[in-house]
Design a protein around this nucleic acid. Structure first.
Lengths: 217, 217
DNA sequence: CAGACTCTGTGAAATTTTTCACAATACGGA
DNA sequence: TCCGTATTGTGAAAAATTTCACAGAGTCTG
């Protein structure tokens, strides 16, 4: 039904998408310093990926390059922005206004990515009403209403692990289909909901493993 | 030379390690509520993975289960802690004491993972001397010395993208072999150095992609 | 204590992802 | 304009990862 975009194309690997974001970062950088074109090899070097990987990734979405010359930086930038959906603004809610939640509220990257944090919630009554970075903390009870009223499409969970599933349930029930989960807990959600876990513990533990097994690579 | 641990065993896939961390999280949880055994199927359900995946992952490191009964929670917990190197404490330095850096200093997860934040650095002279969570911010110039004196094995980069490579270079030169990079920049480091990127932009962009291409997958 | 049942460990198959390699194409200089 | 060079796009091969599926081992019930 909406295969149209990728019709006969092969399925895009899961792992390609985050790399597209990397490419976009680089071409954005390049466009700032007024560089006009870049080859897959150079782009690969800048992202620590192989040239073939770069070409293959881009190839899933069309033909953006010019044989013998490489990719036009501005064109590729535009194309990637389109693919990654930067053209339509998205409204984001943060649930949990602790250390992490407030660091996120201050994070400048959101604006760059056409993401607006339009609401923040916390269960702690003493925090309600406080304003962080122009966003007033509200009671978590207001969440379902806010999702609808403010057309929120991404929920960021920044609460302790024990409360994460409950928050996820509320988000799902309210109609949010994308969750960025900072809590160290595996969330249970329906198939149609996309969860991305950002788990510091896991990252650290992975590093510790490589330290412990140093050398095995 | 230190293949000994995994002698004749097949190479452990990169992707297995973060999952081990997930398993450990679950068995730790289970041990708290005094559950004695768990099957691969249950562990899989709790982590949104298949039972086969769980067994295969554990299988790379030995035979921890009992046919017909499952895995002993305490034994598996111990085994995973060993594998992930939680038995030896590691010293960590955070570079960058902005919003993110200070949120990290407050993050309770480090202690749990046998990680000690023993030092924090910032380039901003006005921040030097301030104490966060019992750690005094120092000048970034002190970093090389601190790495040696305090036996720091993990560096966490929490500076703006433009400064990340410079900080990475200092870390590498000082002998740090593990870097957790929060800056949205691709770091260039020697082969023997392990970098883990935690890139919020990339996560968000990936989510946005799935929102934009909602329905496919 | 026997038989039914459960659940692991693991080769082999299937799938996914990455790399290879090269024909086709466009550019740029003479 | 033509030739040499650079670089893409992409099937096909290789590698990595996941899933399948089942023999074998241990558990539990009556």
């Amino acid at each position: 039904m909406n295969q149209d975009k990728q019709q006969n194309k092969k399925k895009v690997p899961e792992s390609t998408i985050p790399r597209l974001s990397l490419y976009l970062r680089e071409v954005t950088e390049l466009s700032k310093v007024n560089i006009k074109t870049i080859s897959s090899a150079e782009l690969g070097e800048r992202t620590n990926l192989s040239d073939a990987q770069v070409r293959k990734d881009l190839g899933y979405f069309g033909q953006f390059g010019v044989s013998g010359a490489g990719y036009s930086v501005v064109d590729l930038k535009k194309a990637l922005e389109k693919i990654l959906g930067r053209d339509n603004k998205l409204n984001v809610a943060i649930i949990g206004a602790g250390h992490l939640g407030s660091a996120l509220l201050a994070y400048p990257g959101f604006k760059k990515h056409a993401l607006d944090i339009v609401a923040a919630f916390d269960a702690d009554k003493t925090k309600i009403g406080i304003e962080f970075e122009g966003v007033k903390i509200r009671s978590i009870e207001d969440l379902p209403m806010a999702v609808n009223k403010q057309n929120i499409s991404i929920g960021i969970i920044a609460v302790p692990a024990g409360e994460a599933q409950g928050v996820a349930d509320i988000l799902v029930k309210s109609g949010v289909e994308c969750i960025l989960n900072f809590a160290p807990a595996s969330l249970n959600v329906p198939e149609n909901v996309k969860v991305k876990d950002v788990d510091l513990s896991r990252e650290l533990e992975t590093l510790a493993y490589y330290l412990a097994n140093n050398g095995d690579r």
